[in-house]
Computed example of a mutant assay.
Amino acid sequence: MDNDTGIDDALGLLYLLASPEAEIVGIASSAGNVPAPQVAANNLALLELVGAPELEVAQGALAPLAVPLRTTEDTHGPQGVGYAELPPTTRTVSDRSAAQLWVDLVREHPGEIVGLCTGPLTNLALALRMEPQLPQLLRRLVIMGGAFNHPGNTTPTNEWNVHVDPEAAKEVFDAFSAAPADRRPIVCALDITETIEMKPAHLVRLAERAGSTPIELVSETDPPESRSAASNPLIRFLTDAVRFYFDFHKLYDQGYLAHMHDPFAAAVALDPSLAITKPATVDVELTGTITRATTVADWAGMWGREPNADIVVATDPEQFFERLVDRIGEYARVAFADGEARR
């Protein structure tokens, strides 16, 4: 997983940890929602919170390929996890860079690794420069990013992850033009991920599944200083993190809800049958005065280039949330069955 944790990235990581069919072989930390060192610290602390086995967490590049880094603490909070606080940890960042981690893993396990990118694509682009055969060595790549027949969430036409490092996104899509058809990236763009709406009732369901008390219903009238009193530490973390995300979406007139972009991509990485996809040729605008970082899909072959992506065009959000609640809720229940995280 290559992420920029990030509230919804945290839920994406938790979804993988809670899924018995998933084996996480490495976590690459991308600069995006917050700077790369904070992302790595968040990933390590989240693993500590739930008592996860030791996993390699590598820090990524400090800046995008060609432009200064832009972060979004207004969306995810000053540390990237909303109102939540993560525990101190003695876990440490890998000696390998995130790009080197990508390269080493695909070389060691050719045809086996599923790559999941829920942040800017800087690390993957750097890895491709080191190993141009990476598209052939991966089993599959899943990307959360882009906007096609849908408004952007950063400018009128572009999505945040691509906006942070459009040069990297273009390099990745160009490189995957060489991937076989069954290894084209699956792209979860805003067109679909903004239909994945978490609401306060989903947090209630998570708490109930985990056996956490009291059952709390967060509200837009809750003051910012409010904190969860949930007995389960993971439910407490999720409630405080996601409530910040609710507040952010409400501030921008999107309702008291949160778009769960990244856990949806994680679910698709484990089970592509959750999504209906359509092949297209994707490119990224780099020079437009008002359209820079826009992802453009050629659905009809007008460019005369083979498809380099399978774009998600439909899904069942309720089916996804049933899985998320069942998996993360049960994971929280088991992890803290005796009051503290089990390793």
Rank of each mutant, 00 (worst) to 15 (best):
A127N: 04
G301S: 10
L46W: 02
E85W: 02
C117G: 03
L69Y: 04
T118L: 09
Y15F: 15
P307A: 11
F173E: 14
G146V: 03
P88L: 13
E194D: 15
A309F: 08
W160I: 14
P68L: 00
A332M: 01
L251Y: 09
T155R: 00
N149L: 07
E131T: 07
G288P: 01
I328D: 11
D104T: 11
N149Y: 07
G115S: 14
A175K: 00
H202N: 14
A31Q: 06
V164P: 04
I24H: 04
V325N: 02
L190I: 12
F246M: 10
E197F: 02
N161V: 13
W299K: 07
I186K: 00
T72C: 03
C117V: 14
L137T: 12
G329V: 08
T89K: 00
L47Y: 06
D191F: 02
E171K: 01
P180D: 15
G145V: 04
V296R: 08
I186Y: 01
M144W: 02
R333L: 03
R183C: 12
L126N: 07
V242R: 02
W303P: 03
R183W: 09
E73T: 14
T72P: 00
A229I: 10
A275V: 06
P64C: 06
F320W: 09
N149M: 06
K170C: 08
L121S: 10
G288H: 03
R91H: 12
R140E: 13
R184H: 13
R342A: 10
G255Q: 06
A84Q: 08
S212Y: 03
A337C: 03
P317V: 14
D9Q: 12
G111Q: 09
A66R: 05
R184W: 15
I186E: 04
P53Y: 05
P132F: 04
P166I: 11
G211I: 11
S273W: 02
D191V: 09
S212D: 08
R343C: 02
Y256G: 09
R292F: 06
G115Y: 02
K170D: 15
A258Q: 07
A41L: 13
P110L: 07
A181T: 14
E340F: 02
D74A: 09
A40E: 12
D338C: 01
L86Q: 08
T157M: 04
L206H: 08
P20A: 14
A280F: 04
S177Y: 06
R333E: 15
E306C: 06
S226L: 13
S219Q: 07
A181G: 09
E197N: 13
A293K: 01
P120V: 12
R205K: 09
L13W: 06
A147R: 00
N161K: 01
P279I: 07
A266K: 02
D74N: 09
D104E: 15
P20I: 12
G301L: 13
V162A: 02
P272A: 10
G115M: 04
R292D: 13
P272K: 00
A201C: 05
A297W: 09
V284G: 05
